[in-house]
Amino acid sequence: GKMTGIVKWFNADKGFGFITPDDGSKDVFVHFSAIQNDGYKSSDEGQKVSFTIESGAKGPAAGNVTSL
């Protein structure tokens, strides 16, 4: 299901970062391709987002990331 969290950091040059879930669980990796914004796929530190957890090649990753 959908979770909410805060972007801990995001490196636009490398195209990835981490989200800290609101439920206190482990930080989740986020790749720019998962960000659902139109246009520039980046996110700012401290941005509140909703997301799903997908199982990626390197473990859990955020999917369907949407700014709230």
Rank of each mutant, 00 (worst) to 15 (best):
K2T: 11
K2L: 12
K2C: 13
M3Y: 12
M3V: 09
M3S: 07
T4S: 07
T4F: 07
G5H: 02
I6R: 08
I6H: 09
I6P: 01
V7S: 00
K8V: 07
W9A: 00
N11K: 05
N11F: 04
A12E: 09
A12T: 11
A12H: 14
A12Q: 12
D13C: 14
D13F: 12
D13P: 02
D13V: 13
D13M: 12
K14P: 02
F16N: 00
G17P: 00
G17H: 01
G17N: 03
F18P: 00
F18Q: 02
I19F: 01
I19R: 00
I19M: 00
P21V: 05
D23R: 02
G24F: 05
G24Y: 03
S25G: 13
S25M: 05
S25V: 03
K26Q: 13
K26Y: 07
K26S: 11
K26C: 11
D27M: 06
D27N: 06
D27F: 03
D27Y: 03
D27V: 05
V28K: 00
V28Q: 00
F29P: 00
F29E: 01
F32V: 13
F32N: 07
F32I: 14
F32T: 07
A34E: 08
A34T: 06
A34D: 07
A34H: 06
I35R: 00
Q36I: 14
Q36V: 13
Q36M: 13
N37R: 10
D38P: 13
D38R: 08
G39F: 14
K41L: 14
K41V: 11
K41C: 14
S42A: 12
S43T: 15
D44L: 15
D44I: 15
D44C: 15
D44T: 15
E45Q: 15
E45F: 14
E45T: 15
Q47N: 10
Q47V: 11
Q47E: 10
Q47C: 14
K48P: 09
K48T: 07
V49M: 04
S50D: 03
F51K: 00
F51C: 05
F51A: 02
T52M: 06
E54S: 10
E54I: 15
E54Y: 14
E54Q: 11
S55H: 14
S55I: 15
S55L: 14
G56H: 12
G56L: 06
G56S: 14
A57Y: 12
A57E: 12
K58P: 06
K58R: 13
G59M: 03
P60Y: 09
P60C: 09
P60F: 10
A61S: 13
A61K: 14
A61F: 15
A61Q: 15
A62M: 01
G63T: 14
G63W: 12
N64T: 06
N64K: 08
N64Y: 08
V65M: 05
S67E: 08
S67M: 15
S67C: 13
L68W: 06
L68M: 10
